[in-house]
Design a protein around this nucleic acid. Structure first.
Lengths: 292, 292
DNA sequence: CGCTGTGATACCTTCAAGGCATCACAGATG
DNA sequence: CATCTGTGATGCCTTGAAGGTATCACAGCG
């Protein structure tokens, strides 16, 4: 009757690996078990999900459909467990995700003031997991930098802010008032290229939608690398200002549009606290705050 | 490891009934089984979900949290099964939900023209299930009349259109060019009152958020009832025009704002076909079409 | 005091999920 | 050509979860 989440998880593992043996290893079960479970899932759905042709394993169209939609369901189940766990630990908890450089205390304090018995927590996120924390239930709302994959989310834009390039102090461009994107053509970008979509136009990357660049680092690490001369990073002005240090310099970029900061939450939820916090955030974060 | 959807479904039944025996009956299982399954779920989550105090059964805060968020997960699982089933039946199928009175053929034909091998189906919905068909996977996109519960959906407004009141031909107001809401104060509204939010202000209903009125009927039935003099209905102009018949008259309402028609789809999905159809719908349905 | 409604326990049966050993087969390798 | 290797499928066994029935324990009511 019910779809079995375990089998779905098994399916996802096989679909990722396209190999029963390796998938079984990853799942810490024996390979024959996996074979049988997938067959059971197929017969339960009345659909063949994989084409096994002795040498390679591939997804059928139905398998593709399942693969495309199963992720959110698994994440949703995990989120359920997390939210229940948090609801059980004593009083209500409301968790706000934020990225370094954003000053969110105004909105958080306002919410705390309005609900003295509510415990409001903050959770630091990175560019990579700013969306995941919402879908897996670690946070109730999260401040995100657009663009993000909006699947499953509600997103309301709060404000825009300019982006700057961070250079080592001795860099040839470090003393300029302002630079152009083209000035940076020869530089190494120390962050995922999708975080700066315009970079692709500059370097002529041909749609490297997966992993178009180095793995994500924390901002402090990025700045450390910049200081040591191994490359540059492009950051929102307030983030760059937040981490001021003598060995790097932030220079504004003339022909790069602003980033937008938004508040996001799980589209399937609608709690009074979330809408209340959204309203407070709109008031307290309608413009970038000067960095402290 | 995995959350068990069967147990969640059991939990929802108990939470709805607040009575183990009746919930068990509804689930077609024996009551002791249900007792044990709920206990198992509680120990799996490490949280008490119900307070059983011999005489009544109530939700704990953790139970409330689970109850609030579990629905979408169950619906999502059901949607998974449906979508896979549809993907399996031969070629790709794209299903468009619509409400009677909306002319959607333009957008549908455009999509078919762009994808000759795609089978585009239409699914007639009612006000009550216009959202459900999306969340449970019966349709890929659906035309909806706002306002709707937007949880879990992406919604883009297409156009606005005025609303009219449909009266029996012999009605005292039937010959007027235009009526005011207050003129209708004594009438019986033959549709869920939430479908006409302004009605509540008129009659002074005190927040009847559940079932504020009669059960939903198909438009033809409503008109039949109007013709027989048992009440009136308020409809979008194009819907009223679609079902023209001699024994009822549509009169516009001066002080009632327009309804908005929007295209909606599951927020967790993002398929090329959906965005393509959204674009086509914006072109082909940017204004109300005259009824045929 | 006994009747009723309600959830929990005890005990049994069935079946799904796990493990291990082994098979069947395609392709590479000597 | 014979053999080895990688890969998924089968057969058989064990365990545990989920189902059922019978029954208990207890609160409230007449």
């Amino acid at each position: 009757m019910d779809l079995d989440l375990r089998k779905i998880r098994y399916f996802m593992a096989v679909a990722d690996e396209l190999n029963f043996g390796r998938a079984a290893q990853e799942l810490h079960i024996a390979q024959p078990v996996l074979s049988r479970q997938i067959r059971a899932l197929e017969s339960e759905l009345g659909v063949q999900l994989f084409v096994r042709d002795r040498r390679r394993t591939e997804l059928t169209p139905a398998g593709e459909a399942l693969y495309a939609d199963a992720g959110p369901v698994l994440a949703g189940a995990e989120a359920l467990r997390r939210r229940v766990g948090r609801a059980s630990r004593g009083t209500d908890v409301f968790t706000v995700g934020f990225m370094p450089g954003l000053i969110v205390t105004g909105a958080v304090r306002a919410l705390t003031a309005a609900h003295p018995r509510l415990r409001v927590e903050v959770l630091r996120t990175s560019w990579a997991d700013q969306v995941e924390v919402l879908l897996d239930g670690r946070a109730d709302v999260s401040f995100v930098r657009l663009p993000v994959d909006q699947r499953g989310l509600k997103v309301t834009t709060l404000f825009e802010e300019p982006r700057v390039v961070v250079l080592p102090s001795g860099h040839r461009l470090a003393s300029k008032e302002e630079v152009h994107l083209s000035d940076l053509a020869g530089e190494t970008l120390l962050q995922p290229h999708k975080a700066v979509p315009e970079w692709q136009a500059l370097t002529g990357d041909t749609a490297p939608r997966d992993e178009g660049g180095p793995a994500p680092l924390a901002v402090e690490e990025k700045l450390e690398h910049v200081a040591s001369g191994s490359g540059i990073v492009v950051l929102p002005a307030s983030t760059a200002g937040f981490y001021q240090r003598p060995d790097v310099v932030a220079v504004s970029i003339a022909d790069l549009g602003p980033t937008r900061v938004a508040l996001a939450w799980d589209a399937t939820r609608r709690s009074r606290l979330i809408s209340e916090f959204a309203a407070l955030a709109a008031v307290h974060l309608s413009s970038p705050r000067p960095a402290g």
